[in-house]
Every structure is written in structure tokens, then in C-alpha cells.
């Protein structure tokens, strides 16, 4: 146990130091990312204004709150991509990680967790600027704040698991971008990324319950911006934990079979 803790602390520190050297690159990345929710926010605010100030219970200020929190949750959702897995396997980069006496996934989780710390720090001025321009309506309670803190880190772990599983498909075949694209399209619609799920047709909302997407995206946002009951808040956290455990289980099973397929190309 101790060696895992040591490993995580060291890797996270390294990742923070490494990423802190590239504030410009990180900012470019974040501004590109922020454009997406700003577009949604503007479009939906325009629609709400045209419909007399509110649609589906959302005022323009509520949309602003939703999409500003969105930017942080989106940052937390950035993990090692399936395309990265493809590259790692094709280039034989994985060989090196296999030499280490620790599961390679720990390396990903720790590195990106460190990067997240930098991202969150860089996010704060961005969020302030967005709040200045769009005047969000956001009054979370203390409990909501606490639940939100856990929810975004759980979201990070859920997405790490799902994308790792997806990435591991590349052990069997290297033509996978089609599969990835389908996955991302489903995620866009079922997660609450495009629009708050409550504005989606009923059947989409019901379907969203059974996929991991909303637990990694819409739920964390709503913990802070919505008015969920205490019960629902904890139910949501429970669902997140269930997905993390289930994801980790699938990852370890798939990994067992996948690693037998691996033949290093080089590296």
C-alpha cells in the first residue's frame, strides 16, 4: 500500500512540475475547450430569451451557471485518450511501462491527476472572466460544494476507466477510430454535454441513466447548479462509485486477455 501512495505522490508532483512549464500551451488548450460551452450557452440563452425568459426551468443566468461549471467538469474529463492507447501499442511504447512492477494504468491515473491540479488552477481566472461576461446564477450550499468536489474526481475516474477499456480494444485491432467516434457521439448526447439532460426528450433522459456518460458529466454539474435533494446527491455519488468499481473490474479483466495479444513493435 505504501509503495502505491509513494508512487502516486511522486507521479502527481512530477506531472504538476512538468505541466506548469507550459502555461501558454495549457491556456490555448483551455480556451479552445471553453469555446464549446460558450457557444451552447449563447445559443440556449438566445432561445430562452426569445421564449419569454425561460425554457425547461432554465433562465439565461441558469444556463450560464451550468456551462461555466461545465468547463471545469470537462477539464476533469480529459484523460489518456483511446487514440493514445493506439499510439502506445502501435509504437511499442507500452513495453517500457510493462517493465515496471506496477500496473501501467496507475501511471495514467497519477499523471493526469497531477495535470488536473494545474488545470484547476489555470481554470479559476477563466471562470472568473466567464462569470464577469455571462453573470451566472449560482448559489450552492456548503453540502453541494463538498459533493461537487468528490463528484468531479469520481467523474475523472469513471472516464479514465471507460476510455481505457475503449483504448484497450486496440490490442486486437488498430482500426478503431470509427468505434471511438461513435462512442464520443453517444457521449455528447447522453452526458449532458450538449445541453442539460432535462431539456432532452424523455426517452433520452431515461436511457442516460443506464450509461456511464451522465455520471461522468451531467451529474457533477448538477450537484452544484441544480437543486437536488440530499438523497439524490448521495444516490448520484453512489452511482459514480458503482461505475468506478465496475469499470476497474472490467479494465482488469480485459487487461488480462489484452496483454497476451501484445507483441512489442519496438520502443
Amino acid at each position: 500500500m505504501k509503495r502505491y501512495i509513494d508512487f502516486y505522490i511522486t507521479s502527481i508532483k512530477l506531472a504538476i512540475m512538468e505541466q506548469w512549464q507550459y502555461p501558454i500551451a495549457n491556456y490555448f488548450y483551455m480556451i479552445g475547450m471553453v469555446a464549446e460551452p460558450v457557444i451552447y450557452m449563447v445559443v440556449w440563452s438566445a432561445v430562452a430569451t426569445q421564449q419569454g425568459g425561460t425554457i425547461g426551468g432554465y433562465t439565461p443566468a441558469a444556463f450560464a451557471a451550468y456551462y461555466i461549471v461545465w468547463t471545469l467538469v470537462r477539464s476533469m474529463n480529459v484523460v489518456f485518450t483511446p487514440y493514445g492507447w493506439e499510439w502506445r501499442i502501435r509504437q511499442g511504447q507500452l513495453s517500457m511501462s510493462l517493465m515496471r512492477p506496477i500496473h501501467p494504468l496507475h501511471n495514467d491515473v497519477a499523471f493526469f491527476a497531477g495535470w488536473k491540479v494545474v488545470t484547476i488552477i489555470l481554470w479559476i481566472p477563466l471562470a472568473l472572466a466567464l462569470s464577469f461576461f455571462f453573470k451566472p446564477d449560482l448559489h450552492p450550499t456548503f453540502l453541494q460544494g463538498v459533493v461537487f468536489f468528490f463528484a468531479i474526481w469520481f467523474a475523472y475516474l469513471i472516464r479514465t476507466m471507460t476510455l481505457s477499456i475503449l483504448g484497450m480494444v486496440t490490442f486486437w485491432t488498430t482500426r478503431v477510430s470509427a468505434l471511438f467516434e461513435l462512442y464520443f457521439a453517444a457521449e455528447l448526447i447522453l452526458s449532458g454535454r450538449l445541453v442539460p439532460l432535462s431539456l432532452m426528450p424523455d426517452w433520452v433522459q431515461r436511457a442516460a441513466w443506464f450509461f456511464p456518460f451522465r455520471w461522468a458529466f451531467g451529474f457533477p454539474i448538477e450537484t452544484l447548479t441544480g437543486n437536488m435533494s440530499v438523497n439524490d446527491l448521495f444516490l448520484g455519488l453512489g452511482m459514480q462509485i458503482a461505475w468506478i468499481v465496475f469499470g476497474a473490474l472490467v479494465v482488469s479483466i480485459v487487461w488480462k486477455f489484452a496483454i497476451r495479444q501484445f507483441s512489442a513493435v519496438g520502443g
Binding site: 507550459y22 501558454i24 500551451a25 495549457n26 490555448f28 488548450y29 480556451i31 479552445g32 475547450m33 471553453v34 469555446a35 464549446e36 460558450v38 457557444i39 449563447v42 445559443v43
Partner: peptide
Amino acid sequence: WFVRVNEIANLFEGLYAAGRW
């Protein structure tokens, strides 16, 4: 000047998406 600017593609794609409307 800045050397590492490969995130620009991402920046541009994000901003370009605004053109959908």
C-alpha cells in the same frame, strides 16, 4: 518564439465550432 504551440489546432477547432451558428 513559443516553441510548444501544438494546442493551437484544438484552439482553432473550438473557436471554429462557433461558426455552426
